[in-house]
Amino acid sequence: MKFSKIEFTVGCFIVAAIICGVLLALKVAGLTFDFKNDCYTVHGYFDNVGSLKLRSPVKIGGVVVGRVSNIYVDPEKLVPVVEMEIQRKYNMLSSESKASILTAGLIGEQYIGITPGFYDEDMGTTYLKDGDRINDTGSAIVLEDLIGKFLYSVNKSDSSSESSSSGSGDAENVQ
């Protein structure tokens, strides 16, 4: 084959650009290739998903084990449903595990925290499989709701009694 300098440099240019693209995807976007295929999907019903987004992390004790793959509202029950993909190697989660929507820090992003439940065959618990539902869920804490409840309780206690100590006690009870 005839060696052409121009063809060689163009080839190098394209190869360099492809290498740069792969580096960007791996190093900057943190894309991993073996992640998606090796997962199983479970879903849970939540009262309120807050600002949970697609691809939000799913964590056990702070360690990422999966991603949120889909968020939609059940058309019959009108309840938000969150589908999450969990890596296949964490397949020893019992069906009694609890999934709750938590917030990283005060204003951080929201993620799903899974608290592993007990496993006992006699009690009828099983390991979570593909397509299973997590029954025990905890909804996102919406800051506005909390503030609303707090203000409401403060107003109520102010009108009922003058003393500040009973007021704060009321607020705690309501919360």
Binding site: L24, A25, K27, V28, A29, G30, L31, R55
Partner: peptide, 15 residues
Amino acid sequence: FWSGMQSSIDFWDDL
């Protein structure tokens, strides 16, 4: 430096 970058940049949304 790198992990902050990786957590905020999404392959589909950004690249």
